[in-house]
């Protein structure tokens, strides 16, 4: 807050107020798009913690989401454990997987892009295993029971309730993740992470335990993704390995932080709120063109949206590799220039 200009402070407060007010002013459709925005903002924050803070590229975050989703879903459907308890197990399983990947990756010194390939390999491996895991539904999917009356009201223990409740849950998660990352980044850990990211050899030379702090980043990030998995399972109520753990899901998570700005705190949020609505608008436009006959009816609308996302990523890396958020910040003077900070 101290680094913000008065205008920046006002903008932040207005944004927060708007987010809190969305369920009061918006219809069902806008609300569900907002939920996707916040979900991607939250996941973007988790992913950015690894790449943006600690310099570790993961293209396997769907794995942690999937483990969280399947763990809590299984506990709920088979053993009747409510998600409020199941989330602990979900986070534990996701973090256990994170620690396996991290331990192997860092102990065997698998660096850079090879580490990304390791995350992909694990993610695909687990996806195929889940395809064959009959007790988790396999390719036929796992379905969480949900009744009509449970779609009203608020039941946080069972994570059952109205769309408004899901909105506030994911808003709380996204806000919590933002505040936590902010605190971490400004603390000792944050400085260690950035030192490791910018120059691992130098960091090690001045005594930073790079193995330990890299592990912290992976554990925290995978745990956060595990929580997102619980939300995913109880919001969508059906889980298919292909849909939850597909590599597309892992790439989707990376889009918002890349567009917003890798390594920035607000970038993942900004990116999610730019990309998701634009994707939706594009979907609407394509559907409209289909109705009026400008585009052939058999064109896959989803494909057009994905093309736009791919183009967005490519253009950002080419033209604004630091992301849009730092540029917007500077243009709108949201943050004080470095010299004037208290």
């Amino acid at each position: 807050m101290n680094d913000l200009t008065p205008f920046g402070r006002a903008a932040l407060l207005a944004f927060a107020a708007l987010l809190l007010a969305v369920p009061w002013i918006a219809s069902g459709y806008v609300l569900s798009v907002s939920i996707i925005c916040l979900y991607l903002a939250y996941m973007g924050q988790a992913w950015n913690l690894m790449l943006g803070f600690a310099g570790l590229l993961s293209i396997g975050h769907a794995l942690f989401v999937g483990l969280g989703a399947y763990t809590s879903g299984y506990l709920f459907t088979k053993l009747g454990v409510p998600p409020a308890v199941g989330v602990v197990a979900a986070v534990a399983v996701a973090m256990a997987m994170g620690s396996i990947i991290g331990y192997l990756g860092f102990r065997f010194a698998i660096g850079g892009v090879y580490f990304a390939l390791l995350t992909i390999a694990f993610s695909e491996f687990v996806r195929i295993l889940l395809d064959h895991a009959k007790f988790l539904g396999g390719t036929e999917g796992m379905f969480l029971p949900v009744s009509q009356e449970s779609r009203r009201g608020v039941d946080l223990v069972n994570l059952r309730g109205s769309t408004e409740m899901y909105y506030y849950v994911i808003l709380a998660l996204a806000a919590g993740a933002f505040l936590m990352c902010r605190a971490l980044l400004n603390g000792r850990v944050g400085y260690y992470w950035r030192a490791i990211r910018d120059n691992p050899e130098a960091a090690e030379a001045v005594g930073v335990d790079i193995f330990r702090f890299r592990m912290y980043a992976v554990l925290l990030s995978s745990g956060m993704a595990g929580v997102a998995g619980v939300f995913y399972a109880f919001y969508y109520n059906n889980l298919f390995p292909e849909q939850v753990l597909g590599i597309e899901r892992s790439i989707e998570v990376t889009l918002a932080p890349i567009v917003g700005g890798v390594g920035t705190l607000f970038g993942p949020i900004f990116g999610a709120f730019i990309l998701t609505p634009m994707g939706e608008l594009l979907t609407e436009a394509v559907e409209g063109f289909k109705q009026s006959g400008l585009i052939a009816k058999n064109v896959k609308t989803d494909g057009v949206k994905l093309m736009f996302w791919g183009l967005a990523v490519a253009l950002i890396v080419l033209l604004k590799p630091k992301g849009l958020w730092p540029w917007v910040c500077e243009r709108l003077r949201l943050v004080k220039p470095p010299g004037q900070r208290g």
Binding site: L57, I59, K300, G303, L306, G310, V313, A314, V317
Partner: peptide
């Protein structure tokens, strides 16, 4: 044009191109 960027950014650029190509084929 991106040879000055760190490896992972180049990787992500090609991932973006990959998404464009595959969804173009899908369309």
């Amino acid at each position: 044009r991106v040879s000055y960027l760190p490896d992972h950014m180049q990787f992500l650029l090609l991932a973006g191109i990959a998404i464009m190509l595959v969804s173009g084929c899908l369309v």
